[in-house]
Design a protein around this nucleic acid. Structure first.
Lengths: 113, 113
DNA sequence: CCTATATATTCAAATATTATTATATTTTTA
DNA sequence: TAAAAATATAATAATATTTGAATATATAGG
């Protein structure tokens, strides 16, 4: 059960192109920092910064393999969120029926759906 | 099909406590600005700013009812994302098997899952 | 124990986001 | 048509995020 603040925080931490790419790769398997250097066009320190942020929020973790840090996914909501983002919906939600009520609205009527 | 930048942008725009509350309410039905004033503890101009941001990103829209602006959801991914955030997973993802390979890793072995 | 490799940390500058305050716009109603 | 209700806009100040550059740490191997 995430609080409102925690839900916002989680999305905020994911919401960066580099971090999304990192998480997408981690859904496929373990990766070390220099693996990320191959496809992210940002500096190594910057990669480490993003990884630290994700880890400080309990989204990923790592184990050591010699001098490599092997990062892996921990938070199970991540693959599900990434899947939604890839999905294409093609349709907007149906517009509300002609004149639904808001608290102060004048026109009676029910919301469709 | 959202680009990487668009996916990050979408999450960034959702990722604020007030905006998440707004979107949660809009999944239930149409609401006007003064409806939001009842449960959001922020000023009216601030509410309008959040609504504008969401609308500029095509996430919500409104129709007029007299002098009320009745806002409603447009982007169909929103209810799905909000559902994921509420869901509780209770379990972390399984830790990777003992010694999975990264590109440079020394130990052979496959990633679990 | 010295060196190279892999990665992290720190600090500062640039930029972006957020909330506040004051003011403007639009529509209804008297 | 003037006032009021509902909402938006603009400008600013406060704060947070992001990146870059330099430096630090840790481990493996010689």
């Amino acid at each position: 059960m995430r609080s409102l603040g925690q839900r916002a925080e989680l999305l905020r931490v994911i919401a960066h192109p580099a971090r999304i790419r990192i998480l997408e790769e981690l859904t496929k398997g373990v990766k070390c920092v220099s693996d990320f250097e191959e496809f992210l066009e940002i500096s190594q320190p910057n990669i480490s910064q993003h990884l630290s942020l994700l880890r400080n929020h309990g989204i990923i973790d790592y184990y050591m393999d010699g001098r490599l840090r092997c990062y892996f996914l921990v938070d199970p909501v991540i693959p599900d969120i990434l899947k939604l983002l890839e999905q294409d919906y093609s349709e907007s939600l149906p517009a509300p029926a002609c004149c639904p009520v808001t608290k102060k609205g004048k026109y009676p009527g029910e919301m469709r759906r």
